[in-house]
Design a protein around this nucleic acid. Structure first.
Length: 467
RNA sequence: UCCCCGCUAGCUCAAUGGCAGAGCGUUCGGCUGUUAACCGAAAUGUUGGUGGUUCGAGUCCACCGCGGGGAGCCA
């Protein structure tokens, strides 16, 4: 196997020396009269290792098999390269073709492909430059997130993926069942045959894939003070947009002794820290995105790290939009949620940086958000980013038992279903707050990629679960 | 789910209702320490599917499928 020190990344960063071994897949090959040049990539960095082969030193049948897409092991000496483009190159003395790739049918060519085509070959797109960079950034970002929370003393809580509480209220859920779909047991029989008899199902009641770990994270926050979850979440919405997935990863910190102000400040600090971390660790990959995908990415990230996020209240946002002189497809009025066009106007036209909007009308937000004293708004905040819209949604949670109970009832929900959530307010309640961050949305922001299906290894969307 | 656009060679795209085309890739040849190399030649098609209109359909119509953009739902 390859260990640290032997990746192509390490070879290229090191010194010239004899007897090195490199493994990887052939990106391209250029033939010259006396030598042929092979670009070898092992996924460790955007750069390829240039392998120089003198064909006369090798069996011609072997050389014929060194084609785009083939997998090689090459032994040789790592030497200064006489030509521009790379400082070191591998002069091959030994070549093993570990896996051939028939060039007549291998779908990846040197020149660019569309993201749509690459998505159709999800098992091979990982070998393209773009997806190499995407997934290196993804792992770096995930690590930066864990590191940030760990450094802040947060407990990493693994909230359940299967949940039997359908009270999360964040959208349509995927059912989880072991019942025979061809012969579903029902309550009663004959003419009285009623609803599905879930008492016979695996968990003895309806179960679902989670849409959020927040409520469970609150349990932990009210014992460990600061906690976070980072895991897959699921939405069975029929959403067909470049910003939605049926399976996506979400980061949800939950902090006790924290109000909305603390929550906002922390969210901003968090975003800046992890972005700076990726900029440091994946500089070459971000250069690639800036050059090939979106030439404003580096500028935007620099801007986010160094600027202060704008803070406005929902009421102020409405006022800005009303007085903008723009005509809106969706009318702007106090009490309606901000539409995509409104969010984009605020982030892209007015402030040209991330904007945090707070104190939304109670009616358009979830029951668990803490009521403000004005009786009209709740302590909610959304972090809006240019180009991709809402990237973080958070709030201070309602910690007062009587107020929460009233809100649950007012929204037509069954308090019995929330018994343990209410219990947390009954025994040692504490002010607390948190937020949710869509991991793939953040990936879009960092990479400049346009479609969320291209920043997750294996996208799940309505009608599609190949690979 | 709604609105709009698209589907032609492996890929990206041309083709007035009238002979199916180009570039890239591939193969072959040439040139060259090359850098998403260069020059020449060749091969490559059930025009997404099913119907329909027409003397004639890649082109027009209907339905279906898939993809893209926008919207809604949201992260």
């Amino acid at each position: 196997m390859i260990l640290k020190g032997n990746y192509i990344r390490d070879l290229l960063a090191g010194e010239a020396r004899s007897e090195v071994t490199a493994h990887g897949w052939v990106k391209t090959r250029r033939d010259s009269k006396e030598v042929c040049f092979v670009q070898l990539n092992d996924g460790s960095c955007p750069a390829d290792l240039q392998v120089v082969i003198t064909p006369t030193l090798f069996n011609s049948e072997l050389i014929r098999k060194v084609t785009t897409g083939a997998c090689l092991r090459v032994v040789g000496s790592l030497a200064p390269s006489p030509a521009a483009g790379q400082s070191l190159e591998l002069q091959a003395t030994q070549i093993v073709v570990l896996g051939e790739a028939d060039p007549a049918t291998y779908p990846l060519q040197k020149k660019g492909h569309t993201m749509e085509f690459l998505r159709d070959i999800g098992h091979l797109r990982t070998r393209s430059n773009t997806f190499g960079s995407v997934f290196r950034v993804r792992t770096s970002l995930a690590q930066a997130i864990h590191r940030f929370f760990h450094d802040q003393g947060f407990l990493y809580v693994h909230t359940p993926i299967i949940t039997a509480s359908d009270c999360e209220g964040a959208g349509a859920m995927f059912g989880v069942s072991t019942l025979d779909l061809m012969n579903v047991p029902r309550v009663g029989d004959g003419d009285r045959r009623g609803h599905v008899d879930y008492s016979q199902d695996f968990f003895g009641k309806p179960a679902y894939l989670t849409v959020s770990g927040q409520l469970e994270a609150e349990i932990f926050a009210l014992a460990f003070t600061n906690v976070y979850t980072f895991g897959p979440t699921f939405r069975a919405e029929n959403s067909n947009t470049p910003r939605h997935l049926a399976e996506f990863w979400m980061i949800e910190p939950e902090m006790a002794f924290c109000d909305l102000q603390d929550d906002m400040v922390f969210a901003e600090k968090f975003l800046k820290s992890i972005i700076a971390s990726v900029m440091d660790e994946c500089a070459a990959d971000l250069e690639f995105f800036n050059k090939r995908i979106d030439n404003s990415v580096l500028q935007t990230l620099e801007n986010v790290v160094t600027s202060q996020f704008e803070h406005i209240t929902y009421t102020e946002a409405i006022s800005i939009l009303t007085n903008s002189g723009s005509s809106w497809e969706f009318p702007v009025q106090w009490g309606s949620d901000l539409q995509s066009e409104h969010e984009r106007y605020l982030t892209e036209q007015v402030f040209k940086k991330p904007v945090i909007v707070v104190d939304y009308p109670r009616e358009i937000k979830a029951f668990y958000m803490r009521a403000n004293d004005d009786g009209k708004t709740v302590r909610a905040m959304d972090v809006l980013a240019p180009r991709i819209g809402e990237i973080i949604g958070g709030s201070q949670r309602e910690e007062r038992h009587d107020v929460l109970l009233e809100r649950i009832t007012a929204q037509g929900l069954d308090p019995a279903a929330y018994w343990w959530y209410l219990d947390l307010r009954k025994y040692g309640s504490a002010p607390h707050a948190g937020f949710g961050l869509g991991f793939e949305r953040l990936m879009l922001y960092l990479t400049g990629m346009k479609n969320i299906r291209d920043v997750i290894p294996f996208p799940r969307t309505p009608g599609t679960a190949e690979f």
